[in-house]
Amino acid sequence: MTAFVFPGQGSQKVGMGVELAQASAVARQVFEEVDDALGQKLFQIMKDGPEADLTLTENAQPAIMANAIAVLRVLEQEGGLVLADKADFVAGHSLGEYTALCAAGAFSLADTARLLKLRGRSMQAAVPVGEGAMCALLGADIEKATALAAAAAEGEVCTVANDNDPTQVVLSGHKAAIERAIALVKEHGIKRGVLLPVSAPFHCPLMQPAADAMAEAFDATPPQALRVALLANVTAAVVTDPAEVRRLLVEQVTGRVRWRESVIALRDAGTDRFIELGGKVLGPMIGRTVADVSITSVIGMADIEALAKDL
């Protein structure tokens, strides 16, 4: 069985999608459609930067999605792939869940871009700059990370945001609490804590205003029927009902990305092949989480041609 997976924030870099756009009119069409939907020249920022503009949450989120969907569309139109025939599941890391839903037909490309723009903006606006932070714990499992978060909180928010793999967990919350967590890593048997270069504390209760904004957005743009089952971030369980998808997307803004558990759930459901479209971020996490599975990362034209032959 095969799962197509889609990367989250942090996988953006200046120059993304350029080679694909030069090689394929289909890819260029995707980037143009996203630009039109957003009323901005997002592809120009992806192509030329500056990096500071691309890293802005409201740009990074639709850009990462557009890049992955461009890869998928080229695979579909030039490689003859029909996703619903080849994929048993789709999944994505945080914003990648929206990409997965776009791939599965729950949202149009234009709507996905607009939803992610709003999501990025709302997440940025939920907490004043400098009040929140996130840190990656290296050499930490979920038990150690949870204990550390509880010890560092001291009445503030400090919680597990992403359970990425057996060696990497991300905490999110108030800046002072995150700094305390980094200072306490050794006491909790964790190798290292690294402050992440993010502009807001994602996936924690401080994001509630952004969750409210997304709930309102889904009134106007609810998810449609899925052509492929989704493995949801916040439950690490399969979901196919659009109303349930909508509820979980709202919950996801403040909730934990259970990526490690999602990968295990996919493997337990029979997935032995993971294909990451538009990045090389999830592949290593999957490899550290489950053994004896095939992992392919697809970014450029050569990757697409190789995969098209193989599917």
Score class of each variant (00 low, 15 high):
Arg260Ala: 15
Glu216Lys: 13
Lys47Glu: 15
His93Thr: 05
Ile295His: 05
Val18Trp: 02
Ala236Tyr: 08
Asn59Gln: 09
Gln168Gly: 01
Ile69Leu: 11
Gly120Leu: 08
Ala66Asn: 06
Gly80Met: 11
Val169Ile: 14
Gln40Phe: 05
Asp310Trp: 01
Leu83Gly: 03
Leu171Gly: 04
Thr289Ile: 06
Ala149Pro: 05
Val71Met: 01
Cys102Tyr: 02
Lys117Gly: 04
Val127Asp: 02
Glu143Ala: 15
Gly300Ile: 01
Pro50Ala: 13
Thr235Cys: 10
Leu307Phe: 12
Arg73His: 07
Arg28Tyr: 07
Leu109His: 12
Phe202Thr: 01
Asp310Leu: 08
Leu54His: 08
Ala110Met: 07
Arg288Val: 10
Phe31Tyr: 15
Val228His: 00
Gly132Arg: 07
Gly279Trp: 02
Asp53Ser: 13
Arg260Met: 15
His203Lys: 08
Glu276Leu: 12
Arg247Lys: 15
Leu75Met: 13
Met16Leu: 11
Pro284Thr: 07
Gln224Glu: 12
Ser172Ile: 04
Leu75Glu: 00
Asp268Pro: 03
Leu171Ile: 06
Ala302Gln: 10
Val157Gly: 00
Thr99Lys: 08
Gln29Cys: 02
Thr57Leu: 07
Leu196His: 08
Asp272Gln: 14
His188Gln: 12
Val281Glu: 03
Gly39Ser: 11
Asp292Ile: 01
Ile69Asp: 00
Leu195Ala: 15
Ala265Ile: 10
Gly92Asn: 03
Gln252Trp: 13
Asp303His: 03
Glu251Met: 13
Pro209Cys: 09
Asp111Lys: 08
Asp111Ser: 14
Glu97Phe: 09
Met16Thr: 03
Gly10Asn: 12
Arg119Asp: 07
Leu184Phe: 13
Leu230Ser: 03
Met207Glu: 11
Asp53Asn: 10
Asn233Tyr: 12
Ala27Phe: 06
Glu78Gly: 04
Ala133Phe: 04
Cys158Pro: 02
Pro205Tyr: 12
Met1Thr: 12
Ile304Gly: 00
